[in-house]
Design a binder for these strands. Sequence first.
DNA 1: ACCCATTGGTTCATGATTCAACTTATTTAG
DNA 2: CTAAATAAGTTGAATCATGAACCAATGGGT
Lengths: 158, 158
Amino acid sequence: METENGTRWLSDEEQRAWRTHLDVSRLLTHQLERDLQPFGLTMNDYEILVNLSESQDRRMRMSDLAAATLQSKSRLSHQITRMENGGLVRRENCESDRRGLYAVLTDHGWETMRKVAPHHVQAVRRHFIDLLSATDLAALHASLTPVAQHLREHRGQA
Amino acid sequence: METENGTRWLSDEEQRAWRTHLDVSRLLTHQLERDLQPFGLTMNDYEILVNLSESQDRRMRMSDLAAATLQSKSRLSHQITRMENGGLVRRENCESDRRGLYAVLTDHGWETMRKVAPHHVQAVRRHFIDLLSATDLAALHASLTPVAQHLREHRGQA
DNA sequence: ACCCATTGGTTCATGATTCAACTTATTTAG
DNA sequence: CTAAATAAGTTGAATCATGAACCAATGGGT
C-alpha cells in the first residue's frame, strides 16, 4: 500500500469509495439543479431562500448569509444582486452597524419559496433520501459529521 | 411527517443528514481545489489527466472522456482547449472515424501527473479517507453505490 | 482624542460554464 | 444509391464564479 517514494496510495476499495462519493456529489447537485430549473431557480438561489425564510424577520446580514451558505462575500454579493433583480430579495441597511446590510426576503420571495419547496423536497427524496434505509442514512450522517467538522476548521488555510 | 398538502417533508434527522452530505461535498471539493492550486491545476484538469494516464496509449476519444468525467461535450471541448494551451494535452484526429478526435496526454502532461498525484492523494487522505474507519468507508461506499447508479440512469431526462 | 488594524461589503477584470446553433461525417431506411 | 436522421465536436454569446483591490465604518490601544 506504500511505495518507495513514501506516498500512501489508495487501496482499490478506497479508490472506489472515493470515486463513488465524488460521482454522487456531482450527479446529485446536477440533478437537483435540473429539478429546480423549471422554477427559474438555482440551488444557490434556493439555499438563500431557505436561510432567509427560516430567519428572524426573514432577514440576515450579508456576512452571516455568506458564512451559512459557504460562499465568498464577493460571490454572495453578486448573487444577491441577481436575486434582487428577480424581485426575490431586497437589500436594507443596518442601523446598528452602518457598514452592514441585510438581505431581506420579499413577499414574492416568500411565495416562491412556498411554491417551490415541496418539489425540491420531493426531488431530494427521490434522488437521495428514499434510496437509503434509515440506518444507512444515520450511519452516513455519523461518518460524515467529523469530516464536515474537520473541513470547517481547516477552511481558509493551507 | 406528512402535511395536508401531501408533501412528505424531511424529518429532522433526514434534514441533518442531507445538509451534512451537501456541506461535505462542497467543502471537500473546495479544499481539494485549493490543494491543487499551487500546481496550477483544477480538479477538472486533474481528473482528465488521471483518465488519460490510465488509458491505452494515454489517449481517449473526446466523447468517452466527456462521459467518464460527467461533463458536457461543450464543456470538455473548452477544457481541452485550455489544457492544450497549457501543453498538458494535445488533440489528434481519429483514423477510423473522421469526425472523431483523441485527447492525448503529452509528455509534459504525464510528468505533471507524476509530480502532482502524490500530493493530491495525500490531500484526499487527509481530508476524507483517513477521517473514516475502514468499516465506515465500506458502509458509505455500499450505501452510495445504488444512489450513483440511480442518478446515472436518470441522467438526461425529467 | 487619534491612529491603525479589522470588519463589512462592493467592484472590476479575468476565467469558467452553459446552452443553442452550427459543421462535418456516419448510419439507417427505403 | 440516396435522403434523412443521428453522432462527434466546435464555436460564440451570455451567465456565473473568483480573487484582488478597493471604500467606508468600527473598534481598540495608547
